[in-house]
């Protein structure tokens, strides 16, 4: 409970500092929009700034913003005058969908891969996956994406290059539509999962190795437990503990999206929305992101702590302690 109250000043601090940093960045939104356009005079720019409320002192602007946020009003985007909430909500499903799909893919592949490698550490499988994973880890994802596109979409002509639907989508039947979306999402999900798979499976391998070398493993085996039970019941449960932390921390990442492959695959996700907002100094959109990500980060940490209690009985939060 006390922890939850502690989050409030933390949240205020995060937003105040972010607000200040964005405001101190040189370049004003209105000026950037009409830069070097001789048809737009200085007076017009001043007039537009006034209409946006950008001529007010900083602390007033911040307090205005804060009072709006507390009423769940994220304001309007300076770029196109649409409500920020609407802009975020229309992109949320696609980013969330891709990230969830890739997270599932990561867990399904990385954990067995790590465990298998750890069981026969130094063996052929371990060495082989180590090399492959390091190559994939080192390869920049945009480059990998372009190579895969060249291979699957141009040379083999199997998959569409970019976007999330075909241009004749509306003329398709329902099964065709589903297949069309899956075909479009295959490469983006694969590429976004690759980085996670390489990282997580190495973590898993290292954790597993550590646990396998613990004396209680010997004890388990000495008690005559079957190898399967030793590995999957006793070893895996302990080895997976740090993974839970990592998954908790990746919660904000679910909404973050990535500018790089959203751009490469032309996917209308949140990553691009926030990137463009930052380039435009579109303060309301930037701040909405700050709020989202900070809340999710705090929530992620909080959930990871709670998950610990269930995964590891030794950890107990005692209000008397």
């Amino acid at each position: 409970m006390r922890r939850i109250f502690g989050l409030v000043p933390l949240f205020l601090g995060i937003t105040a500092i972010s607000f200040l940093v964005v405001k101190l960045t040189p370049g004003k939104p209105v000026i950037l929009q009409y830069a070097l356009n001789p048809k737009v005079s200085l007076e017009q720019i001043r007039r537009l700034e006034k209409l946006e409320g950008l001529d007010q002192p900083l602390h007033i602007q911040y307090l205005n913003w804060l009072s709006n946020i507390l009423r769940f009003n994220f304001g309007y985007s300076l770029a196109d005058g649409r409500p920020v909430k609407e802009k975020i909500l229309e992109r949320l499903p696609i980013t969330l969908g891709i990230n969830l799909a890739s997270l599932v893919l990561i867990i399904l592949i990385a954990i067995p891969l790590g465990v298998k490698a750890a069981l026969k550490a130094g063996g052929l499988f371990d060495n082989f996956t180590t090399v492959i994973l390091f190559i994939l880890f080192a390869a920049p994802s945009f480059w990998l994406a372009l190579l895969l596109m060249q291979l699957f979409c141009i040379q083999l002509n199997l998959l569409p290059i970019s976007g999330i639907t075909s241009l004749d989508f509306e003329y398709f039947t329902l099964p065709q539509k589903i297949i069309d979306i899956l075909r479009h999402l295959f490469l983006p999900v694969l590429v976004s999962a690759l980085g996670g798979i390489t990282g997580l499976s190495r973590y898993m391998r290292a954790n597993m190795l550590e646990v396998l070398n613990q004396p209680y493993m010997l004890a388990c085996r000495a008690r005559g437990l079957p190898e399967r039970v030793v590995i999957y019941k006793h070893a895996l449960r302990n080895a997976i503990l740090p993974i839970v932390t990592i998954l908790g921390l990746s919660l904000p990442g679910l909404l973050g999206g990535s500018v790089i492959f959203e751009s490469i695959f032309a996917i209308p996700g949140l990553g691009r929305l926030f990137f463009e907002a930052a380039m435009m100094r579109d303060i309301n959109v930037i701040m909405a992101e700050v709020v989202l990500v900070s809340i999710l980060t705090m929530l992620g940490n909080f959930l990871a702590d709670i998950a610990y209690i269930y995964v590891d009985p030794r950890i107990r939060f005692n209000s008397k302690a």
Partner: peptide
């Protein structure tokens, strides 16, 4: 399509 390489592909 924000990426120039994608446009060319």
């Amino acid at each position: 399509i924000p990426d120039e390489s994608t446009v060319f592909l």
